[in-house]
Design a protein around this nucleic acid. Sequence first.
RNA 1: CGGGAAGUAGCACAACUUGGCAGUGCGCGUGGUUUGGGACCAUGAGGUUGCAGGUUCAAAUCCUGUCUUCCCGACCA
Length: 473
Amino acid sequence: MANEKITKRDVDFAKWYTDVVKAAHLADYSSVKGCIVIEPNGYAIWEKMQSILDKEFKKLGHVNVQMPLLIPESMLNKEKELVEGFSPEVAWVTVGGNKTLEDRLCIRPTSETLFCDYYKDHISSYKDLPKLYNQWCNVLRWEKETRPFLRSREFLWQEGHTIHSTKEEAIKETNQMMDVYYNFFHNYLAIPSIRGMKTEKEKFSGAEFTLTNEALMYNGVALQAGTSHYFGQKFSEAYDVKFTNKNNELEYVYQTSWGTTTRMIGALIMVHSDDYGLVLPPKIAPKQVVIVPIGDNEEVNNLSNKFKEELNNNDIITYIDDSEKSPGFKFAEAEVNGIPVRIEVGKRDLEKGIITVARRDTREKIEISKDTDIVSFVKELLDTIQNDMLEKATKRRDELTFKADNLDDMKNILETQPGFIHANWCGDKACEEKIKEIKGCKSRCIVPDENVSGKCVCCSKEAKYHVIWGLQY
RNA sequence: CGGGAAGUAGCACAACUUGGCAGUGCGCGUGGUUUGGGACCAUGAGGUUGCAGGUUCAAAUCCUGUCUUCCCGACCA
């Protein structure tokens, strides 16, 4: 019997998603549109993501800073493409009375401006480079349609902003950070994302090129989660960030930026979860094991405590649900909250010398001897769950991966079951726009492919690129 | 930002059409009995009906505005 509070995934995917978010107490609506309350269970996932990614960033030499929340309009306006890209979404602060328009302040939609403004006075020689700065913060973009985690007006993210003395080094950084995101998705989130370059139309305004990490949700809709941009000298020219190179010449710095957001929590839900609620990969679950004691007796309590202690001593995050609720309630609660492993320690089992272990991903129950080495057993089970989840998600992604040779193919796929659609493209923006007319289908990314041959899916001219297309959140 | 629907206790809803004591279930507190897939009995608490105006002797109910949420489009991490 599935959870009554959760709409079936196959009945109404959008409703299912918000039901899971609420039932697992990840987030709730606030009285400000598009600004959610991230509740303890949701914030714990974000903290886990932060701690893993932050370690990776620091391994590669990055350091954290904190920039101001507010940006003066005059400063923002220096980079034309950035302004044009964001202008409809920028929120202005009207406090202060007699400010002129030029002196208005906005709440950061992104912080390129602030980093450039800082960098310009803090470097002078190539010896000062690179600067590898990152910040964890909130930003604000006035979205029209909002959805918890997937599209909120205020969201938490991490934005890396680096400056380099050579183009090669900056491009290497751009690629390297995309690798960090891609590996994080595969190794921790168990999400088989794909990566590639955005087309001219879809790239970040102001970037020379944008790399993207694209994940496919269970319903076949794509979610962009993780981008890495190469700016070249666009921003450094606009903000006058110069250095003296080895030949004693003044040169503008080469710049990158890269970011991931709380949207990753949304991806986690929409890839792995089911009709019983949240399913979390063990490596990202803030709580990995719950012990449910059944029947109040000494042996039950002693064994529960012993397991908890042993597991926690071995870095497996474990807690005992010793509330007054009935066992059935506790099982359901653990499922809704996506606890990867549940250990049932009950007096009836103990009479037979066993305990029951249940895994969240498959809901399978395993009976093992009560004398089993619980640490090695659970460790192995968590690894198995982690691997199985990636495998299952990969299988689903592959089922939803298609190939289109012409517009009719494309239309058929999008109207029956959307997914990742591989199709060749001539590189012409007009074709991209024509494809978008089919249910809003957009290019996800250009796949690195040396030998593109065949015709454009739209105009039948010679193809230049191998592109993956799809619907997006 | 256009089209549609909704907002009443923590949650799900009833009362609205035809204005007249603010209701039900779940959840919550207390006492007890229970405990292997969302336990049971008893008892108790919980409300300016989203908010602001208006009409009226009287507004959850009628009118106007506004905010929030959901669905469908256009725009976006």
